[in-house]
Design a binder for these strands. Structure first.
Lengths: 232, 232
DNA sequence: GCCGTTTCTTGATCTCGATCAAGCCCTTGG
DNA sequence: CCAAGGGCTTGATCGAGATCAAGAAACGGC
């Protein structure tokens, strides 16, 4: 079981170029754990003892303030989270919970920092990864500040369609309330915004979305790589 | 003139620990330029040819979409910007303009990447800096999603007071319209929110702010290091 | 298969914030 | 000194989104 995970982790850009010896060392000290759904893995404010890797399942990153809560991101296999806190040895800024049964790999932060110090390829990969994380949050921030909720939803749907392979019909990956929270809106509002997007050829039935005319929706959504492209 | 700047730059965490030789190399290939106010230094979407350092003056980072514009951050001496784009060799996600007469140091991105590859101390510093940038954007995002505009303003004022040394009276560093845009609100709304904060002991006259009772304002603002602390 | 829970939806209402418009004040340049 | 322009404030109105409430649909557990 562990060996299967090794491959997946090794294939991540973050671990792909590092020395085999150092990779093995990290795997040796790693904890492999399976969690049921709805388990809070970490809480914001706690010291960052582990770098987390989602080997299987799905994890939600969220934050609280003054009895309000918001979803910051969803992490899917194979992805990592809390890299920045690990690097800086600072408290977590977000909490994390499993959304479904998930297999999580925990790398002790101090070991990650130790390998970082002696493995240049790994150090480079950490920098590249962090820069990517930074840019994706900047994009999320632009999305929030420059667009209305319906515009955010339209672009979200276009992106989901791409990730699903481009077919006119596809399934939403998470419940709508989480999508709403991620997009900075209420579930009620999401419902209404979906009806609004019907005017631009978007049909929804449960979690199944059908985009009749992509061009039509695109004209409304006005996507730009400087906000919507996950890679660059 | 240049030598004076050297010290300021060298004192930055980003450049402080690197080899003197490599630092000198970077300074040798750097461009030192003074710009008048309101000059657009870079535009989002352009390739990232230079890492920028604000040696003197003030620079606004902003973004546009669909005829809307928002202020993302203000960079003050001595601070850098566009580090993530430089590292990834990816297009700028934000534009930048001078707000006042500013002296800017431009480091060619490829030289920065070259030094990064051979100087471990610099590489480590880049990672630390990027992690800090990432965390500050996450905080900004939480601020936007979890708070109302008046709550954001109250916390902004508390932070400004700290940065000004803690005295009851202090001056705002930029025009209110920029503050409004940074906080994700309109100038009109900022004006009204300031009046609202009067109920909690905040007085404003032009750019001069007086906080009569910090505890009172704090009870309303409910600041938390997980959103408002710039350092951690 | 049924019950209880939770999510989703829809409608009504309200609040926050945006927009539009006008007047004031300050700065800047002639 | 005056005129022009821009930033700031204030009021009125509008619109987006939040909240409250209730019913419908989906899901999970026994």
């Amino acid at each position: 079981m562990k060996e299967k995970d090794f491959e997946g982790i090794r294939s991540l850009p973050l671990f792909h170029e590092m020395e085999e010896e150092n990779f093995q060392e990290l795997m040796r000290v790693a904890y492999f754990q399976t969690f049921p759904p709805q388990i809070e893995l970490i809480s914001e404010g706690e010291p960052s003892d582990f770098l987390h890797i989602v080997a299987d399942g799905m994890v939600e990153l969220f934050s609280n303030w003054n009895n309000r809560e918001t979803t910051m991101a969803i992490v899917r296999p194979v992805g990592t989270f809390i890299l920045a806190a690990t690097v800086r040895d600072a408290p977590y800024l977000m909490s994390a919970r499993t959304l479904e049964k998930s297999r999580i790999v925990l790398l002790p932060s101090q070991d990650v920092r130790a390998v970082f110090d002696k493995d240049n390829a790994f150090a480079r990969a950490v920098v590249t990864e962090l820069a990517a994380c930074y840019r994706s949050v900047i994009k999320a921030s632009k999305n929030l500040k420059l667009r209305t909720s319906t515009e955010r939803l339209a672009n979200y749907m276009l992106r989901r369609q791409e990730l699903a392979g481009g077919a006119p019909s596809f399934e939403l990956p998470i419940e709508k309330r989480k999508i709403a929270s991620q997009l900075g809106m209420t579930p009620e509002n999401l419902s209404r915004a979906l009806r609004t997007l019907g005017e631009y050829g978007l049909e929804i039935d449960g979690l199944k979305v059908t985009i009749a005319d992509r061009d039509d929706l695109t004209r409304f959504a006005k996507p730009t790589p400087l906000i919507d492209d996950p890679g660059t």
